[in-house]
């Protein structure tokens, strides 16, 4: 499989704090990569740096074979990298139709299929702030899916969802990879979701990668169990 994302020796600082330090990660075309680690370990910062929300202090990011380290978030989005957010990020005072049309127009695509797949087609004329929490999370994901991104970064997509909604989300992500060939990289605290759907898992701790590999191997890694999984493992 082709490598679509190459991250080398990435460092991100917040003031004097090194949120990421010497992180190197490779993502292959069509894989689902799970990112896990304790709170503050650097998972979301990693997503922010890859997506262009936060510029790194040093290191290099290559996306689809091209250097994007200093490119803006907009440029990366137009090149096929999309993301959702830990806190729901939608347009509260626009209807579902208005915001999806706005996003779709940028990519010349039809949002109908996404809305159907995410169960939002019945809410087209609703203002986003009138939707329930689960629907708002799905709208956030729908906005990220417009334009058929080649790499999708998801920051805790199952946060606040019910068990059934989390499982449905996992199914949807599997279908996305299978049908559209999208590569997915997701941060998630729900271990059932992460180990259930990921092809490989990267474990962060204090801004560094401490383990990486197939879910089974990562799960039994003593360093990972010590740092994060604990009794869950």
């Amino acid at each position: 499989m082709n490598t679509i994302l190459e991250v080398d020796d990435l460092a991100v600082r917040y003031g004097g704090v090194r949120a990421l330090d010497g992180v190197s990660v490779r993502l292959s075309d069509g894989e689902i990569r799970g990112l896990i680690g304790p709170n503050g370990s650097g998972k979301s910062t990693f997503i922010d740096a890859i997506s262009g929300r936060k510029l790194p202090a040093s290191g290099r990011i290559r996306l689809f074979g091209q250097e994007v380290t200093r490119l803006s978030a907009v440029d990366r989005r137009l090149r096929g990298l999309s993301r959702s957010f830990q806190r729901t990020s939608i347009f509260p005072e626009l209807t579902v139709r208005e915001q999806m049309s706005l996003a779709a127009r940028r990519f010349g695509s039809d949002p109908g299929e996404i809305l159907e797949a995410l169960g939002l087609a019945a809410h087209l004329e609703s203002l986003a702030n009138q939707l329930g929490y689960g629907e708002q999370r799905r709208l956030d994901l729908a906005l990220a899916l417009v334009g058929s991104p080649k790499l999708l970064l998801l920051d805790e997509p199952a946060a606040g969802l019910s068990r059934a909604e989390s499982l449905a989300l996992a199914d949807m992500l599997r279908a996305l990879v299978r049908d559209a060939g999208t590569t997915v990289c997701l941060v998630e605290h729900d271990m059932d979701v992460i180990f259930g759907i990921s092809d490989s898992v990267t474990v962060f701790d204090t801004g560094r990668v401490i383990a990486e590999g197939e879910p089974k191997a990562v799960r039994s890694d003593p360093a990972v169990r010590r740092a994060y999984l604990g009794s869950e493992g």
Binding site: S51, S82, F91, L102, R106, F107
Partner: peptide, 20 residues
């Protein structure tokens, strides 16, 4: 007009749907 309203609402999301 819709884009400017969207930017007012959530500039970050506007960037992440591909708009300057």
């Amino acid at each position: 007009g819709q884009l400017t309203l969207a930017i007012r609402e959530n500039p970050e999301r506007a960037r992440f749907i591909g708009y300057d």
